[in-house]
């Protein structure tokens, strides 16, 4: 038996028993639903301008399809948004520069202060899509994108995996305070940084 066979035999016995599919799908919905309201307020002007320029029509019962513009990695991009007002879910698709199409699904319920859940609105969904975004690059570095701005934040994270940076809202010129996590979570505030596990949670705890 070769060393490689020996190693394979040994480590193939390590088996995980977690239901990742259910957890990952569930976490995606929770992240979308747990955006702090401060974040929505911070970029509402952007969403409003997007909303009025779009072309709206009913595509299906409960669904509204609409042309919107999104910031994708620093570039403003034309996209089509299909929003279901019944359950608050949406699908957005846009064409990349190489001709391929990217489709993003998200939305769902919003958890209110009293613990009840309500479907998010289309404006909330647009806010959600235009939030700052943390991207893990191929080389393991991290970039933060917001509207036309980008920043290398690889060396800014603290021991908890969060970093705190100021960015500018292009329309209002106001500073927004961005808390970005290595896990891709983002929260913004108009007047101060949002504190993980105090002002927001990404784990459901």
């Amino acid at each position: 038996m070769t060393n490689r066979d020996f190693y394979h035999r040994t480590f193939s016995k390590l088996q995980t028993s977690r239901d990742y599919l259910a957890e990952v799908k569930g976490m995606k919905e929770k992240r979308k639903a747990r955006l702090p309201k401060a974040a929505v307020a911070a970029i509402i002007a952007v969403a409003a301008s997007v909303g009025t320029s779009g072309l709206c029509y009913a595509a299906d019962v409960g669904n509204i399809q609409r042309q919107v513009q999104l910031w994708v990695r620093g570039d403003q991009t034309d996209a089509v948004m299909d929003f279901n007002s019944t359950d608050g879910t949406y699908t957005v698709s846009y064409q990349n520069t190489d001709g391929t199409t990217t489709e993003i699904s998200g939305g769902g319920v919003q958890i209110n202060a009293d613990g009840t859940e309500t479907p998010i609105s289309q404006e909330d969904a647009l806010d959600d899509l235009n939030m700052p975004e943390v991207v893990t690059n191929d080389d393991g570095t991290y970039s933060l994108y917001y509207e036309g701005q980008s920043m290398d934040i690889t060396n800014l994270f603290d021991d908890s995996g969060y970093c705190y940076v100021e960015m500018k809202d292009a329309d209002s010129g106001k500073t927004i305070y961005v808390t970005a996590g290595k896990d891709g979570s983002v929260a913004t505030g108009e007047n101060r940084y949002q504190i993980p596990e105090k002002d927001f949670s990404t784990t459901g705890k």
Binding site: V24, M27, R31, I104, D183, G184
Partner: peptide, 10 residues
């Protein structure tokens, strides 16, 4: 898996 699922990387 969450990064893969929610990311837009092609």
């Amino acid at each position: 898996f969450l990064k893969y699922y929610t990311g837009e990387k092609d």
